[in-house]
Amino acid sequence: MRQLTSHLGPLIMLAAGLAFAIGAAATLDLGSLRRMGPGAFPLLVGSLLAILALIGLVQNLRHPMEMNRADPMAVLGVTGGVAAFAFFTPLAGVLPATTLAVLATGSVIPGFRWPHRIALALGVAAAVWAIFVLGLNIPFTAVRGL
């Protein structure tokens, strides 16, 4: 099983290379050697990527490169934080979104106590306001409705 997953990397690259090459050949004008169309360069580079991926696959068959271990909770925490920022900024403004983003990311860190998480969230919001709104005058909606 570990052996199989270690081949996944080059296989994904192979798929990406083929996707760009075939996409270019199918949907874009290739032009001539003298006047190349928009599809020619992506076709070339996509094919090169596919060839390199095949070489990588052969290398991997001979000396499998083990995958690094994933940490789903960390991915979830960071994704949740960025998503909270992106979702709440249009609804409520940058500062509330900042607070929620810090809470979301902080909540997956083990042993980080809630009072500390809340204090950090408020502190970062205050710092963002001081630096970006007050200091740099970047035209943000700090808090919607204010």
Binding site: G81, V82, V94, A101, G106, H116, A121, F132, F140
Partner: peptide, 17 residues
Amino acid sequence: SYLYPTVIVLICVGVYS
């Protein structure tokens, strides 16, 4: 634990700005 959530927000604000 204080630094990383702050870095994430700085990245978000930076990209958004």
